[in-house]
């Protein structure tokens, strides 16, 4: 008797999905989909950050090496690091601006990345060269994905460089 009642109840149930079931499924799928797409967005963001760090390191290396070789007229310094009187400089000596694709641009307004140079003369002269503390800092103007930090420091490097102080060279 009980079994036959249970079978009748089972047979009376409507077959297929109800509207509520369907809405719940679509809702669940949407939430899962949003998380999946968010995962890709985070992955892309991490990739962008590592590419930015790479570029910061390589450009900083480029500057340090070109100072060592006293090449002032090459990119990215492009002759503009030829400082007239380093001993009188305080704070930021120079800024180089890059756009989103890490191409050098002229103005700060359109810049996404800013590379700042600080030079401090240690007044030690050897073989016609002065010893300087050089610090390079790379900052990103706009925040990364789902971040609020503006002007984030991407990379900082400090080193000592010998720069020629003889007449006719890059310094007074």
């Amino acid at each position: 008797m009980i079994i036959s009642n249970l079978l009748r109840i089972k047979n009376n149930r409507k077959k297929g999905f109800s509207l509520v079931e369907l809405i719940i499924s679509v809702g669940t799928l949407s939430v899962a989909g949003a998380f999946i797409l968010l995962f890709f967005a985070y992955s892309k963001d991490i990739n962008t950050r590592s590419f930015d760090l790479d570029n910061s390191v390589y450009y900083s290396n480029y500057i340090i090496e070109s100072i060592k070789a006293e090449i002032w007229d090459d990119e990215p310094t492009d002759n503009s690091l030829k400082i007239e009187s380093l001993s009188q400089q305080d704070g930021i000596v120079k800024e180089i601006y890059f756009n989103k694709d890490w191409e050098i641009i002229e103005t700060q307004e359109d810049a996404e990345y800013i590379m700042e140079f600080y030079l401090d003369n240690k007044d030690e002269i050897a073989m016609g060269k002065g010893l300087y503390d050089l610090r390079i800092t790379v900052t990103k103007k706009n925040p990364y994905f789902r971040s609020m930090t503006v002007n984030r420091t991407l990379y900082t490097v400090e080193t000592k460089v010998f720069i020629s102080t003889e007449e006719g060279d890059s310094l007074d």
Binding site: F51, D54, N55, Y58, Y59, N61, Y62, E65, S66, K68, A69, E70, I71, D74, E75, P76
Partner: peptide, 25 residues
Amino acid sequence: MIENKGIDFETISVEGKSFKGFIAF
């Protein structure tokens, strides 16, 4: 190559991304 100074180089990827490098002698 910059005579007696160093080597300036640039690597460009398949997707067109580039890294610049310079090494002093």
